[in-house]
Amino acid sequence: MTDWTREMEEEAIAWLIRQRDPSFDDWETFEAWLAADAAHARAYAETAAADRDLDELLSGVSWPAEAEPDFDEPVVPSRRRWLGGALAASVALAVAAGSWLAWPSRDLYSVQTAAGERRTVVLADTKLELNGETRIELDRKDQRFARMEQGQALFTVRHDPAHPFRLETADATLVDAGTTFEVTTGGGALDLAVSEGMVVVDPGKAGIDVPAGQRFTLAKGQRTGRLSAVRPADVGAWRSGQLFYDGAPLSRVAADLQRNLGVPVSVNDAAATRPFRGVVRLDGGVEPTMARLGVLLGAPVRRSGKGWVIAGP
């Protein structure tokens, strides 16, 4: 049985909606509302974590046209014919682990960041913004190639039809034709979010179009991906100290916090798959961030040695 009123629930939903506005900056008022009554925090945490349809939560809100599509069903790839003009207007993402062996020899060198560290690398026509705990290999002979082993990075690429940019991960190959996208990879999973341009996902030699405003996720051990909506403004938002979530499991939240804050963050088994919706601010350092997270979740977030543990509800 809940201890909050319908009015509190409506206020919590209103806060979630307001926080989706890129210009929202009324954090002090929001935190004052949370602190005014413990039931406010529980109402917000329950509302944010509820695995409900976005259309119900955000009814009546107008979004940019590119963010409107919302696909919650698993996407089973279908066969796709490649036309020259299609490649000139999209990114090809093909599951091709190990396919790089067939390419000419390369002169690779590694660039990596530690947890809590960020780094920007500028190549000929590409800018790579690396978040913490990221490792990527670049080619001294070919600045239109990269191999990402793990981590998170935002890519801004200028199209060159004669020499497209290629990014390889353990699970996929991306051939870019001029776009901005974020890739998070590691542990056999892939998360691709597109803010500009188009991505064609091609696991198993079949194609799925992923336009700007869409996210493609491929879970560990899976060959079927999933599409969902993402606001273009949220792609790479970690660069400005904010993490946006729309139903992500707490295990992903913990990994992101560790990557950005530079301290170990884990989540116990009981809470690992719990979905979370909300905005986590990183300003103020580790302790203020973790304190805010505990309020948002309505669940304990405890210090453990040199790190932190997100406990179950």
Rank of each mutant, 00 (worst) to 15 (best):
V286K: 10
G225P: 06
F216R: 10
V286T: 08
G98C: 11
L58R: 10
A67C: 05
A189V: 02
V230C: 04
N260L: 14
V235Q: 01
A50D: 09
L108G: 10
A212K: 00
D25I: 10
E129Q: 09
A177N: 13
A97C: 09
L167R: 05
D55N: 12
F24K: 12
Q152F: 06
A270R: 11
G213L: 11
K220S: 11
A38G: 15
W308F: 13
D160E: 14
V91M: 12
E28F: 04
A115F: 15
L227Y: 03
L16T: 00
T184H: 01
T179M: 07
R144E: 10
V295T: 13
A271G: 03
D176E: 13
R226W: 08
D202V: 06
D160G: 05
P69V: 06
G241M: 10
A272Q: 14
S266K: 08
A89Q: 15
A48T: 07
R226G: 02
L57K: 09
V265C: 05
V157G: 02
E66T: 00
R42S: 08
G187V: 00
R239T: 07
S62N: 08
S59M: 12
D21V: 06
R259H: 01
D234L: 00
E129C: 08
V121E: 15
T120A: 13
R239E: 12
T217P: 00
A12N: 07
L282G: 07
L257S: 01
G85E: 15
E46R: 14
A96P: 01
V91G: 15
A146M: 06
T134M: 13
D107Y: 05
E56F: 09
M1Y: 10
D234T: 07
E182R: 06
A50V: 02
G151K: 03
D3V: 09
F145A: 07
T5H: 06
R79D: 11
A254I: 02
G204R: 09
H159Y: 03
P69C: 06
D53V: 08
D37V: 02
D55W: 07
V194S: 04
S23I: 00
L34E: 09
V95T: 12
A49M: 10
D191Q: 12
A229P: 03
G284W: 11
V61S: 00
Q222I: 00
A39N: 12
E31T: 05
V183R: 02
L128N: 06
